[in-house]
């Protein structure tokens, strides 16, 4: 269903673009912006100002149409964009430190902006712990992130938790650079 809606919107946007070209006007409809690092949308650079042509009344550009893929996209698209910031943890720890709190505050704002979203917080661990105990440690990490989000006013029933231990490392490397990326709470939108 959602994919169909998205396809319809995409076709409409493309049709708008084709029409504009036919009239030899400056292109107006822009392709969907690529996902930005911060996860927020619609911050494509403004169009270059038209070269001034003397003796001609400049035609004002048509209003830009932007599409928030976090609204129109299906869950696969949203999670590909991955709008939430990961929360990283120290070794053997599920403590939410200052950096983690900042990331969680950003995530809380996003959850307030999209109030229908239900998310799953995945707890992950690095390979320096054992496979079995890491299942529990990852759960504690996911839970710590959830608890902090709840303290920021996010309803607990929008926040699911699961642990993957060290089953799914984000960085397959075997150094601190990789391990620090793998000790994380990772956020996935599971319902919108």
């Amino acid at each position: 269903m959602r994919q169909t809606q998205f396809a319809v919107i995409a076709v409409l946007v493309m049709a708008l673009g084709a029409g504009a070209c036919g009239k030899k006007k400056p292109p107006v409809a822009r392709p969907m912006p690529p996902p930005s690092a911060s996860g927020t949308t619609t911050t494509a650079p403004p169009p270059a100002p038209p070269t001034p042509v003397p003796d001609t009344t400049p035609i004002p550009p048509e209003p830009r149409i932007t599409d928030d893929p976090l609204v129109s996209g299906d869950l696969d698209i949203i999670n590909k964009i991955s709008p939430f910031q990961p929360v990283f943890f120290p070794l053997d720890s599920f403590e939410v430190d200052g950096t983690a709190q900042q990331a969680l505050s950003t995530n809380a704002a996003l959850l307030k902006k999209y109030p229908s979203w239900v998310i799953t917080i995945e707890g992950h661990c690095d390979e320096r712990g054992t496979a079995e105990y890491n299942l529990a440690l990852g759960e504690k990490r996911a839970l710590a992130a959830k608890t902090y989000l709840v303290s920021l006013g996010i309803p607990a029933d929008r926040l699911r938790t699961v642990s993957y231990g060290k089953e799914f490392p984000f960085d397959p490397g075997h150094d601190e650079g990789a391990w620090s990326k793998n000790r994380r709470a990772h956020f996935v939108v599971t319902s919108k």
């Binding site: 239900v118 995945e122 642990s163 599971t190 319902s191």
Partner: peptide
């Protein structure tokens, strides 16, 4: 085993 249920989350 993990079991993904969509909006209700993923469980072991």
């Amino acid at each position: 085993a993990w079991r993904a249920t969509g909006q209700f989350g993923t469980f072991q």
